[in-house]
């Protein structure tokens, strides 16, 4: 089976209980409005970028922490026999990465609608938002797996995941600042670095998940 089949399967599972997706999208919107209300709109590039990434990071944490919560014991057994552990984690990570990439980009556009865009390279920012959200969701999904097999709720996956997401956050914030202030080549370099973080997180997840999934 190609990887796309497993991701589509995840997507179908999500669609069956619409509350999950609707909740995740609403979470992005609500936190955007909260950020807007709390600051009254900002134009300073550093604060603007910081707010954007805080909102994006927390919505990624929120959506990815759900990724192993809804598995009933019966479904776990089915997945255990149906997929190899590596396939399962790739599917889960892939689904979350695509979902957060899309919702992150949409959230970014809404953020610009509310706060304005203090620069001119919208496309470059979109790329950074996409790779940054994807990297954070790969990490978040793996932490959700760790929290789930340890018998803890999604609360622990936030505690475990947030410190590990800081390298992603630092690269994303730096890159975004360059994108806003005209440092195109540096911004692309940070986008490349975020892409590498994506690959690193996926590779580590693929290698390590089999050890979590063997009971």
């Amino acid at each position: 089976m190609p990887i796309w089949t497993w991701i589509r399967h995840e997507w179908r599972l999500e669609l069956r209980q619409k509350a999950g997706i609707q909740g995740a999208v609403l979470y992005v919107l609500v936190s955007l409005v909260v950020a807007y209300q709390a600051t009254g709109g900002v134009q300073e590039a550093e604060i603007w970028v910081g707010l954007l990434w805080i909102v994006l990071l927390f919505s990624v944490v929120n959506s990815s922490s759900r990724s192993f919560v809804n598995d009933s014991p019966g479904r776990k057994i089915l997945l255990y026999f149906w997929l190899k552990p590596g396939q399962l984690i790739l599917a889960r990570m892939g689904y979350q990465m695509v979902f957060n990439l899309v919702s992150g980009c949409l959230g970014f556009l809404v953020f610009c609608l509310l706060m304005g865009f203090p620069g001119n390279q919208v496309f470059l920012m979109l790329i950074l938002v996409a790779v940054g959200s994807a990297a954070a969701s790969a990490l978040g999904t793996f932490m959700a797996a760790v929290a789930s097999v340890s018998g803890n709720g999604p609360g622990l996956s936030a505690i475990l995941g947030l410190p590990l997401m800081v390298p992603t956050l630092m690269a994303a914030v730096k890159g975004s600042l360059f994108a806003l202030q005209g440092g195109t080549s540096q911004a692309w370099m940070y986008a490349g670095m975020l892409l590498l973080l994506n690959l690193l997180a996926v590779a580590l997840g693929y290698l390590l998940f089999p050890y979590l999934w063997r009971d």
Binding site: L160, L164, P167, L197, L204
Partner: peptide
Amino acid sequence: EISAVYGIFAFVLMVVL
């Protein structure tokens, strides 16, 4: 098992950081 997995994951990312 779980803490070994988390430890490896965290260490590699911290090296990056």
